[in-house]
């Protein structure tokens, strides 16, 4: 369980997280990036950039 840095809601993680994993806050839909797993820390994920894609 982590706290969303945007809306301060609790965000549950279904599985053991991985560093760099993107998760979504169920309350505010913010994308969060897992920074570290021990201790579990998240931050708002970077915004989409112009050249992102497939």
């Amino acid at each position: 369980m982590v706290i969303c840095p945007e809306c301060e809601s609790s965000v549950a993680l279904a599985e053991p997280p991985k560093v760099n994993e993107i998760i979504e806050c169920g309350d505010c839909s913010s994308e969060l990036e897992v920074l570290t797993v021990d201790p579990l820390q998240v931050a708002l994920a970077p915004d989409v950039e112009e050249d992102w894609g497939e």
Binding site: K18, V19, N20, E21, I22, E33, V34, A45, P46
Partner: peptide
């Protein structure tokens, strides 16, 4: 190599 670990990358790992 990736900067975002999305569902696709997780499946590969």
């Amino acid at each position: 190599v990736a900067s975002r670990l999305r569902a696709d990358e997780k499946r590969v790992l």
